[in-house]
């Protein structure tokens, strides 16, 4: 079985970390990752940029609406994610619009840049 492990925390506190503390936390997490990667069990790992860097693509009546900021509704749940390598935010938004167009549900796509990405090892 594949599992996704999602990290939640108070962003304002994490952003108040000193550079040294941030580096130490990343190194400590990296050490745990390393053990699982060596056992062939760890796929991609990503750290997201602050929510201030996010935009959200929402279904509109005629066209999708692009809004500044992160996804903030609590009545919907986090269902999945995609990792995309493109040059500009505009391209990423286009991708989200295409997903939205073929997705019959009324869901929302948040576009959040990654701060850190490790592709991990191939897992099955």
């Amino acid at each position: 079985m594949l599992y996704a492990v999602l990290c939640y925390d108070a962003e304002s506190e994490v952003n108040a970390w000193s550079k040294e503390l941030d580096a130490k936390v990343m190194a400590d997490l990296g050490a745990v990752n390393q053990r699982y990667a060596e056992a062939g069990k760890l796929g991609p790992v990503a750290r997201l940029m602050p929510t201030t860097a996010a935009v959200t693509v929402r279904k509109g009546v005629t066209d999708d609406i692009v809004m500044d900021g992160p996804f903030a509704e609590t009545k919907e749940q986090f269902l999945g994610f995609f990792v995309l390598d493109v040059e500009t935010l505009e391209e990423a938004i286009t991708f989200a619009r295409e997903l939205s167009a073929v997705n019959p549900a009324n869901g929302t796509y948040e576009v959040r840049p990654l701060q850190y990405f490790n592709p991990g090892v191939p897992i099955t």
Binding site: M49, P50, T52, A53, V55, V66, D68, T88, L89, E90, P113, Q115, Y116
Partner: peptide
């Protein structure tokens, strides 16, 4: 680079 990347995204957002 991580500060630069964040800034570039914010500029992209602002330009919109």
């Amino acid at each position: 680079r991580s500060l630069i990347d964040e800034a570039l995204v914010l500029i992209d957002k602002a330009i919109r």
